[in-house]
Design a protein around this nucleic acid. Structure first.
Lengths: 155, 155
DNA sequence: CGCTGATAGATTGCGCACAATATAATTGTT
DNA sequence: AACAATTATATTGTGCGCAATCTATCAGCG
């Protein structure tokens, strides 16, 4: 492969990622609109629902690590969910630096309405589930590679 | 598959896409920082550089179509590039609704500095070019499927 | 010509993303 | 105990990304 090809490939794959990501979240938008949620808010709730079922306490930093977001994104997002009484933000007694996020009953109840969301997405798109799963695994692998590289370069 | 699996964060392609996209653009950021560009600004310039070489006029709507962005994103972005004298925004004489975007000499010159950007990205990450190319093709195919579905649903 | 509908772009407003910085609490060290 | 370093979250500011709305222009048609 020539240098030119490598340069072009970089641009192509990054743009493909950029465009595909927006196309997919655009596909989510009308579905989540019925729950009055944005896509990042939905992701936060996915983590909270999962932890709630397992009886695990979720701190802001847990959400940050799981979703690869920082507090500049999460704090205002969580405040908006709090205003809507979907979550509570409670400062920990043991360590007063920590804020624990818990679901309210409304937040817990929203899970039932959200159950139908994933199915309506790819199900209604005529996309091959096996190919989609393979793509997901490639993306996870790519993410892992990038994060591993960051780790080692920092040390 | 149980309901729990469907809502599990790790099982979602969309999250993999979302996280991988941000990881890749984060990888671009320090490189583009040396040119004082953001990733969307860089994408706009890629289109302009390409059209400039081919002697093609680029309208705002051309950028919107190519990059899948709307004017609410593009207009302020282009104004910022204009303030920095990288592009000109000229309203067409033939059709006064149209705004044509042209490169200034500085904007054209920036292309040389940008040449080294892509190679440093995935090339320096020890990722297999063939796998990256396959990923690009899958993403393009996904994007195409989603856009085709939108087309038909509109009619 | 005057009207209607379509088209191109701009504007406003909201919600992310993220860098940079700040604040407060905790831990480690001496 | 005093203090430096670390950790957890919050705040501020900038730039997307997109929905909704607006203005101006153009094209078609009686």
């Amino acid at each position: 492969m020539t240098d030119v090809d490598v340069l072009a490939l970089d641009n192509q794959v990054c743009f493909a990622l950029y465009a595909a990501n927006r196309a997919v979240t655009a596909r989510y938008r009308p579905l989540l609109k019925t729950l009055n949620l944005t896509y990042p808010q939905y992701l936060v709730l996915l983590v909270l629902w999962e932890a709630d079922g397992a009886g695990v306490r979720v701190r802001v930093s847990d959400l940050a690590r799981r979703l690869r977001l920082d507090t500049g994104t999460l704090t205002p997002l969580l405040k908006r969910l709090q205003v809507r009484h979907l979550v509570r933000r409670i400062r920990s007694d043991q360590d007063e630096r920590v804020v624990v996020i818990t679901l309210t009953d409304s937040g817990r109840a929203l899970r039932e309405q959200a159950r139908t969301v994933p199915g309506q997405l790819l199900g209604g798109s005529g996309l091959d589930p096996a190919r989609v799963a393979a793509l997901r695994d490639e993306l996870k692998s790519l993410l892992q590679s990038l994060e591993d590289a960051d780790e080692t370069s920092v040390r």
